Computed example of a mutant assay.
Amino acid sequence: MTNALTRLLETRDWLLADGATGTNLFNMGLMSGDAPELWNADEPAKIRALYDGAVNAGSDLFLTNSFGGNASRLKLHDAQNRVLELNRISAEIAREAADASGRDIVVAGSVGPTGDIMEPVGTLSHARAVEMFEEAGRGLLDGGADVLWVETISAEEEMRAAAEAFANLDAPWCGTMSFDTAGRTMMGVTSTRLAEFMATLPKPPLAFGANCGTGASDLLRTMLGMADAAGEGANLIAKGNAGIPKYVDGHIHYDGTPELMADYAVLARDCGAKIIGGCCGTMPDHLRHMRAALEDTPRGPRPTLETIVEKLGDFSSASDGTGEDANAAPRRERRRRRA
């Protein structure tokens, strides 16, 4: 299938994705506990500002404000009947921002997890999960999204349901998991297992990888394992948090500087990632530094674990979950460069 993302992947050595959604919206006044998706209808100018922040910082791809835009999550706000509307509006605003840029920019329709645990551990059936993902995706496609982008998934079962839903919609898609538990997802999936799993799907994604998790160092260790398992030519995604979250003056603050994220972006590319962005805490200034570093820094050798620690700080666990000695992390005192 020829689509906007495929064309860019075929012609570019790397693509810069966007940064945080929640962090940026909180800075605009969103209150903790509120549904960001309601702002698509209630505060469209702020959502446009969110998108313009990524576009103006140089992103080649950005995600819509629809992470929680499914019936299960919106039910918490008595908005479960507004999935199609809210997701469509989020993509329409994004489409306008991308088209106004004068560049080829991909609008990726963000689809987050349902928030429910799937059978047999939980109560969410495969059929119901497919139904919810399909509804979420349909609204995004109706609004003009180029590709559907399921993110922060922790279980294979939920990723499989999303893949089936997107196949039903005949939509190109990408998928990322969050490896936040000693190198594994909350449900125990490793980086190498994700690569193996994606290859088994009837309609595989255009690209896959990791987002969120803990710090940038951990995410890059995950990328190394994923690149080994996926093999040469795989389109891998790296969207790491801007440092480590800390509670400062009543607010969550991420300690990653723009300079640290610039180092992270270059290392992510050299680890094998082709789509590189940020997650929680990543602001437009981080993205500008990331783009400049990717443009100005020649491709280097595959980073060692020691290099990652030296540039970004220590890992949060001794292993990434995929091996014993081979993937054990060096332990060093955490520090920030050019803080």
Rank of each mutant, 00 (worst) to 15 (best):
S217E: 09
L141K: 03
R103N: 00
K274T: 07
T322K: 12
E43W: 07
P172H: 03
G102Y: 02
A41V: 13
F67T: 07
A162Q: 10
R334D: 14
G122S: 01
D270I: 13
R269F: 00
Q80I: 07
S72M: 15
A165M: 02
G250W: 01
E196S: 12
M118Q: 10
A57T: 06
A182W: 08
A49Q: 13
E164L: 05
I244P: 07
A207L: 00
D314K: 02
A41S: 15
T257R: 06
G256C: 02
A227R: 09
M132E: 09
D228M: 07
M177D: 09
P113T: 01
E131C: 06
N235S: 15
M159Q: 08
V83N: 00
T192I: 08
C279G: 00
V55E: 04
L38P: 02
F133Y: 10
T23A: 10
G68N: 05
E259G: 12
K311Y: 03
K75L: 03
D325V: 12
V121L: 10
G213N: 08
D228A: 04
L260Y: 10
R128T: 14
L220E: 08
R338W: 11
R269E: 01
R302I: 04
A216Q: 08
M187Y: 08
N56Q: 14
A94M: 06
G243S: 01
V266R: 11
A329K: 11
P245H: 10
H253P: 05
V266I: 12
W14N: 05
G213W: 06
D314Q: 05
R299A: 15
T123N: 13
H253R: 12
G250F: 04
E43R: 12
M159T: 10
D180E: 15
M118E: 08
D142W: 03
R332L: 07
L25G: 03
H126S: 12
E135T: 14
F208Y: 12
F179T: 04
G183F: 08
T214S: 12
V106Q: 00
A210V: 09
L8C: 00
P258S: 02
A292I: 05
G313Q: 09
G256P: 04
D52A: 14
N56P: 03
D78G: 09
L38Y: 01
L206I: 02
E232T: 11
E92D: 02
L305A: 14
H251L: 12
K246V: 08
L9M: 05
L224E: 09
T6D: 10
L220N: 06
E196G: 10
E135H: 03
I237W: 06
N211I: 08
R336D: 14
M159A: 15
T123K: 13
G277C: 00
A167Q: 13
R337L: 13
